[in-house]
Design a protein around this nucleic acid. Sequence first.
DNA 1: CCAAAAGTGTTATGTCTACACCCATGT
DNA 2: ACATGGGTGTAGACATAACACTTTTGG
Lengths: 258, 258
Amino acid sequence: MSLHDAQARLAVSTVIFAISPEADGDGGLRPSLRTPLVRRLREPGLGRWALPGGWLPVDESLAGAAARTLAETTGLSPRYLEQLYTFGEPERSPGERVVSVVYWALVHSDEVERAVSDENVRWFDEDDLPDLAFDHAAIIEYALTRLRTKLEYSRIAHALLPERFTMAELRGVHEAVLRRRLDPANFRRTMEATGTLVDTGERLSGTRHRPPALYRFDPAHSPAAPPSPAPAAPRHAASASASAVPPRPGTDSKDTPE
Amino acid sequence: MSLHDAQARLAVSTVIFAISPEADGDGGLRPSLRTPLVRRLREPGLGRWALPGGWLPVDESLAGAAARTLAETTGLSPRYLEQLYTFGEPERSPGERVVSVVYWALVHSDEVERAVSDENVRWFDEDDLPDLAFDHAAIIEYALTRLRTKLEYSRIAHALLPERFTMAELRGVHEAVLRRRLDPANFRRTMEATGTLVDTGERLSGTRHRPPALYRFDPAHSPAAPPSPAPAAPRHAASASASAVPPRPGTDSKDTPE
DNA sequence: CCAAAAGTGTTATGTCTACACCCATGT
DNA sequence: ACATGGGTGTAGACATAACACTTTTGG
């Protein structure tokens, strides 16, 4: 019952990813990945940019805290939210011991436009990050590798796009994330083979050339049964908009007998 | 600086895997996966079995705490140690809010013989677990899926075997973990193709039939450069005996500006 | 010499990649 | 009509699985 001895403080932070709006039309450059950061208003790290986050309230779930701070700082709601890793080296934060449970999230590109952005909250291009507080740079780097690897065996790219999208837009997301060109023909077949794409029947006119079909994601693969969830399970995975759920908690640890 | 307001307590637990000794010779059944559990000596969950673990000391790293409690309860040192997931639902533990950072570990089968095992510490067969405290059953289940999936794209099986082993023993580990038979011919080729197996030149005599070659793992793929680590990165991964290192920490969270 | 595991070879099947080619639309 | 992205077809490279076959030991 006593919990007042020296303890680490628990924080929750989130790495948020979105695709830059210039993914539109057909002319422009490749779209790029962006992430919002907040300016630190206190020591340590005053003035530097950091991941959105906060202390964990006693009565809030980890994912809940991640989604809340995400909403508070960006005004957005995540289309995808998954635990990334827990960082807890003793010297992480100057002054006191802080353990941070970090999540990563994907938001729709059309939401980004109405996202908060002021003097203390700014979106940065993924390959043009500012000076970051603590080792948040390494954390973002790790979140990026996770996003890249997961994009290849899962179909989470839709979480970065609006409800309806063209095959080229979907490919653009993959190309932006993986940072390499993909063969349009093979990409199409691969995507169609997953069975998660539904042709809405509509076509996007106004492009300079042949109007492309508009697709949406099949909500069929909705959140699986709660019994045997799979947070970071390497094969396929969460597809719908919901978060990636982990097995239920329950670990305590007054263990270590005697 | 104040850290006395209501906060969650931080625990670290570990799911430990080992291969049952009966993997020897060539006669017997398939070897099986086993895991050590400790009996809870306090409420909540008094008398039930639980994962080894304990509260996180302020000055100890997460992985350090995991390795230490592992050593304390089993007398073993992990050949492989990786963070699994952090469980933090508010109702996880009756009474107070507990957030548990859970690790999973692999230990050599020949070490298991000299492992601790008394009234309060016991090794259980993976498909014959006792009544578990909290939702530790779900956590073990999740650790198992992680082990299974990771076994297929990584070569961590050696962490469950002695220094030198036969191809059949290695295959036995895969079969025990994946719970299905594997073609000996194809398995051999797949393993040889990874380039991580080294023929020691020795042969194991005393079997009933043709003496098999003894292999060891190539320490070539030692821990990669620290800059861009990859804790749970889905493709290939840690091979040597060392732990899986994550990107450095650094997250704080007095953030949430405005 | 026989049984059985160790180890090698061969073929069928499926997946991935590169790239040729036709289609439809705005200009 | 024509340039250009949308969309389809197809052949080679490569990985995987199934299984026949040869080798080597203990009994």
